[in-house]
Structures are given as structure tokens and as C-alpha cells.
Simulated assay, not measured.
Amino acid sequence: MTKARAVSDRPAEHPVDQGEDASPRSRNRRGQGLLLREEILRAATALIVRTGSDQAVTLRSVAREVGIAAPSIYAHFADRDAIVEAVVLEAIAQLHQGIADAVAEHEDPVESLLAGCAAYVDFGVREPARYRVLFGWAHPKADSPAAELPGRRQGLDAFQTLVEGLRACVSAGRSSSTDPFADAVAVWTALHGQVTLRADLPDFPWPPTDTVERMTRSLGRIDS
């Protein structure tokens, strides 16, 4: 386990709040450490949702939100990047679970594929700030192996659900795709564009979200 650095080693751009701005908060009873960790995570998520950016997450702002002194955070997170990483991992897990639940509700491969794609867009539209941080937050140092980037495996698992769904359509004779992986990339690109454009241009006269079905059927080469 990586040890948290001493307070004096913290980067200057993330000053440590010694608690002068924190609201009084009763100490957690023995065995409630996980409760404080959850409160820290909820506070960081709330900051991201309110501001639309993970830049609002600092040790000082999270501590103030929870009502604790900033040094108390170190028992649960090494630094602010570790907090944002936890928010990202939770968002990915919820997105993946939502897709999996939607897919499982249908036996027909096409309906299953369409439901999964709709669930993806639904999450992005409902949670624009959390969705944006999945792709826009400052990742670890460039020298970190790609396989170790937080959320990479979970994100690939979610994408694999799309690939497998399209392959199921091909196997059932419902899609003429000859390269399910490439066509799944095209579908994902379109879904991501749908989510980000709706978030960035809310005043545009967007058509109903059934455009997701039209895009999926077209790019997934669904025959019927």
C-alpha cells in the first residue's frame, strides 16, 4: 500500500487546510472509518456535480464540505488525485452496472443492444458532470503504464459489453457487421458525441433521444 506523504511534501498548488475553515464535526466512533471515507467521496462528488469540474476538488474544499480538518483525509486518501480517482471509479462502476441491468432485461439481441446503448446515453444525460470527469480529469503522470491508469479495465469491461452485444446480433443473423469491434467503436463514438453535445448545447432543438436507436441500428448494421 502506498503511504501518504508528509504534509510538508504536498504540492504547493494544493495547500493543506489545517481545519480553520472546517465546521465542527463529531469524531466517528470506533469502526466508523469507512463511513468517513464515504463522506469524503460524497463531498467530492457533490463538488464536481455543482461546479461541473474536478478542479473544484481540493483537500480544503472537501474538508470544508464534510466538516473536518484536511489532515483527517490522509487516513483514507493519499492526496486529492486519489479522491478524484475514487469518484471516477465509482462513476464507471455505476455506468457499467446500469448498462448491464438494461441489457439483462431483454432476450432479443437487438433489443438488448439498444437498451444498453440507451442506458449509456441516459447516464451521461442525467449525470453530465460525472460523465465528463470520466474523460476529462487529469490522469496520473505520463510515465504510468497504460494498464495501471485508474478505471481503464472497468471502462474496457463496459465497452466489451457493447462489442458482445453486437456480436450476438451478428450470430442471430440480425446484423450484417463483418467487424463487430470496429462497428462497436463507431457506435460508442456516436453515443459519446450524443451525450457531450447535449450537455454542451442544451438550448439546441435536439430531437427525441430515440435518435440513439437510429444511430445504433445504422452504425451497428442492424438488418431488422
Rank of each mutant, 00 (worst) to 15 (best):
M1H: 04
R5E: 02
R5P: 03
V7E: 10
D17V: 05
D17A: 11
G19Y: 04
G19T: 10
D21R: 10
A22I: 01
A22E: 04
P24T: 09
R25Y: 08
G31E: 09
L34D: 15
E39R: 14
I40T: 13
L41F: 13
R42F: 01
R42L: 02
A44S: 14
T45Y: 05
A46M: 05
L47A: 03
I48Y: 05
I48C: 03
G52F: 08
A56W: 06
T58W: 15
R60T: 06
R60S: 02
S61F: 04
V62K: 05
E65H: 00
V66W: 09
V66K: 02
V66Y: 09
V66R: 01
I68Q: 04
A70V: 01
P71N: 07
S72E: 08
A75G: 12
F77Q: 05
A78F: 08
A78Y: 12
R80W: 15
A82T: 10
A82Q: 07
A82R: 14
E85Y: 09
A91P: 14
A91K: 13
A91Y: 15
I92K: 11
A93V: 06
A93W: 04
L95R: 01
H96F: 10
H106F: 14
E107R: 00
D108F: 02
V110E: 11
E111S: 07
S112K: 03
C117H: 13
A119S: 09
Y120I: 01
F123P: 04
R126L: 02
R126Y: 11
E127N: 15
A129T: 07
Y131I: 00
V133Y: 07
V133A: 02
L134M: 05
G136W: 08
D143P: 04
D143H: 01
S144A: 08
A146R: 07
A147N: 03
L149Y: 14
P150L: 09
G151P: 02
G151Y: 14
D157F: 03
D157R: 15
A158R: 09
A158Q: 06
A158W: 03
F159N: 13
T161V: 06
T161Q: 12
L162D: 11
E164H: 11
G165F: 01
L166N: 07
A168I: 00
A168W: 00
S171Y: 13
R174G: 12
S175G: 02
S175T: 06
S176C: 12
A182D: 05
A184M: 00
A186M: 06
V187D: 10
H192V: 00
G193F: 02
A199C: 08
D200A: 13
P202C: 04
P202N: 07
P208I: 11
T209A: 11
D210E: 11
T211D: 13
T211I: 14
E213Y: 05
S218N: 06
D223N: 07
S224R: 12
